[in-house]
Structure formats: C-alpha cells, structure tokens
Amino acid sequence: MKVRKLRTAILVVLTLAWVSGAGLLYAAETQDPTEPKAGGVISIPDRMEAEEQAVTRTVEGDAWYDRLQFSGVVEVEAAHQKVEYDDPEQENTKENDVDLATVELAVDARIIDHVDGHVLFKYEDDEVFVDEGFITLSGTEAFPGYLIAGRHYIPFGYFDSHFVSDPTTLVLGETCEGSVVAGYRIGDDLVDISVGAFNGRVNKAGDDDTVDSFVAAVVAQPISFLTLGASFTSNLTSSDALSEVVVDADEDEEVDPIADRVGGWSAFVTLEIMERFKLIGEYLAAFDSFNAGEIYDVEDTKERKPSAWNIEFGAVVVDSLELAVRYGGSDDGGADFLPETQYGAVANWGFFDNTNLAFEYLHDEYEDDAMEADTFTAQLAVEF
C-alpha cells in the first residue's frame, strides 16, 4: 500500500512538473532567474557552495582584516500547529508562537593560498554554540583535491529543499560531527568523490570510544540541469536526530550503547529546467534493523529499520516568487519521530535582495494513525 502511494505521488509530481513547465514556458524565457532565497533548509549542496565561494574568493591585501569574510542569516518565524491524537485519552492541542528562530554568523579566514579556516556560530532553541569549525586544504587546478578537518556536516545525504521545514530525509540522516573528509573533483566538478572518518556519538556495547565510523559519497552532474548521487555511512545511529531517540541512554555518558551499529545509505536526483523549475527526489534508509526497544521506546516489540523519502517540485512563477509542493514520508519512523506521510506547499517571496518571506503549510500523519499534525509557518529571513 505504501509503495503504491509513493508511486502515485511520483506520477502526480511529474505530471505537475510537465503541466507547469508547459504553462510557464514563455514566462521562463522572458525573465531573469531569481537569486537563491534566504532562509529555509540549509542543504549539503548549499553548504558546499558556501565553502567553495569562501575558499576561492580573492584576497585584496595582506592585513588580517583583508583575510576575513563574515556572512550570516537571521530568521524570524510565526507558527501555528494543531495536533490531533487517535487515542481519546490524549487531549488534542493547538499552539502558536512568534520568535527568533535562528541566527547564524560565519567567519571564513584565508590563511594562505589553499589553506582556509571556517567557524559558524549559531543561535537556536535559546542556545548559542559553535555549529561548525574546520580547516580546508584545497588543491590546484591540476590536482583538484581537498581535505576538510574539524567539526562539520559529513557528506551523507543531500537534503535539497524549497521549504522552511526540514524534509524527513534530513531529520533521519543529517550528521554534524568532528571528522576528516578527503575529496577529489573530476572534470571541472563533473564528478565529486569524497570519503571520511568520524567518531560517532553512538557506539555498540563494548566498543571503545574511537574513530571507527566512515562515510563516502559521490555526486555527479553529467549535464548542466541534472545532478545525482549516492552516499553511505557506517553509523546512521549517530545522526543528530536519531541519536536522540536511542533508548536507555545515560545522559552522563558520551557513548550510548546498542547491540550493533547500524549503517545507512542515500540516493538523490535533482532536475532543473531553465533555472525556473526544479524537481527533487531523495531516499535515505538504514541498512539493517535495530533490535526491538533500542530506539523510540524501550517497550517497543518491533525491530525497526527506518527509512525516509522526499519529493518536491518548485517553480518560479514571476520574478522573485517561487511556489513548491512536497510529498514525503517514512517507514518505521515511530509514533512521533518521523511522519509516515507528509505533504504540503510553500511560497517564497524574495521581495528585496537577500530577503525572503515564506509561507508554508505541512500536514503530517504518523504511524498507525496515532497522531496527525497541521502546521502553518511564516518565516522572514535576511542573509548577509
């Protein structure tokens, strides 16, 4: 049944892409493409592009202040959410709020040619912390290799999105860890291959606290409007969100023991037409199953093999107005960790340079119809 629903959704999205493309073809040919919107999901390609721009920028002088570059984003959100439970003993809830959602300040320093430093300070959930801090060693045109060492988002998953809210694939797989990643680009970024090692925050019982987790990824752009790739991690359990739902975890310990580490894999494809229409598809899953009671709930009697998918189609209608739809979901996502079905729409209006106003609606349905949620979000974001 779930496979049938997924196939139907893919057909709907592809049909919408074709119909919208035919209807807006003339507009796309006569208008300039818009700049990327401020705010929203920060995907792996967004992070890679920002790092590339920082590494390749021109330094105007030898003074220390000539070698520094500052950038950042401020996001303010207003949200309303209604949650309904299938269990009559649980009371339905309504919540709404307006608050500062995120502040990011990035500092990039050119040390010498081919050596750069990066630090990203972040405010989120009433906390200020260092989200990223790493050193990049970049190669030459003759040898376009690179090495990234420090705390950063490992190259697992792709997580491209038009939306303010994270796709289910990102929730399941995004991993920010201290790591060393080496990569090599072939044919002027035609293919990017990377491998790395990190010490995951979750290890199996009896293991020492060592660097014994690995990641590998390949991204290819065979033609200008098509990007596809795949990635692997030997320790999916250490992703930022999944590690938080490992049960019986001792908060005083850095390592949360489970019977065995579970790896994961991801595959994605993005299709862009005339820089106006974009179709995104990604699937991310665990290689093996967790034992019953290891994640979500200690009293859970089912083995769990979580997976997630996300499909989006976006179109720039006029100038700075982008409309997009999403269909996503998960298997073995638990009663409240990942929605079994997710769909919604978003409108992004870049009414000034580096300024975006987004209106988003998402509907989430969780496992066994235990819970449904409708969320409306308005986000004002500026990028500098």
Results as ranks from 00 to 15, higher is better:
F351H: 07
E312D: 00
D288R: 08
K302R: 13
T301R: 10
F287H: 13
W349K: 02
F313L: 02
R304K: 14
D300I: 08
Y296P: 12
N291T: 14
L321F: 04
K278C: 06
N356R: 11
A285M: 07
P306V: 07
F290P: 11
E322L: 14
A285R: 04
E282L: 04
A315K: 00
G333D: 06
G334E: 00
N310S: 15
L357S: 04
E312C: 01
G293P: 06
E294Q: 11
A358L: 12
E299C: 09
N356W: 06
F287S: 14
R326S: 10
L279T: 11
A285V: 04
T355L: 01
S320P: 12
N356Y: 12
E299K: 09
A335Y: 04
A286R: 05
I280L: 02
E299A: 10
E299F: 07
L279H: 07
E312T: 00
Y327F: 12
S289A: 11
G293C: 05
T341S: 13
G328K: 02
G334C: 01
A285S: 07
L338S: 01
G329H: 01
F313E: 02
N348Q: 13
D288N: 08
V318M: 06
R326Q: 10
A324V: 01
A324Q: 06
L279N: 12
K302M: 14
E322H: 13
K278E: 04
V325N: 04
N356P: 10
V346D: 02
E282N: 06
W349F: 03
G281T: 08
F352H: 15
I295G: 13
D297P: 09
N354H: 03
S320Q: 14
G329D: 02
K305Y: 00
K305L: 00
L338D: 03
D300V: 10
G344W: 00
G344T: 02
E294N: 04
D300G: 13
D300W: 09
A358N: 14
D297S: 11
L284N: 04
A347D: 05
I295P: 09
F351L: 09
V317K: 12
A308D: 00
D332A: 05
V298Y: 15
P339I: 05
N310Y: 07
A324R: 06
D319C: 02
E322I: 11
D288H: 09
N291S: 15
T341M: 12
Q342F: 03
I311L: 15
E312A: 02
N291R: 11
N354V: 01
L321E: 02
E294D: 05
D300M: 11
E282A: 04
E312W: 00
N291K: 11
D336M: 07
V298W: 15
R304Y: 11
G314M: 01
V298F: 15
E299D: 13
E299G: 10
G334T: 00
W309G: 11
F287Q: 14
G350Q: 15
A308Y: 01
T301A: 15
V318D: 02
Y283C: 13
F313Q: 08
W309V: 06
A324D: 10
D332P: 03
Y296I: 05
R304P: 11
G293W: 00
D353E: 15
D297C: 10
N310P: 04
Y343D: 06
L338M: 00
A292L: 08
Y343C: 08
A315W: 00
Y296S: 09
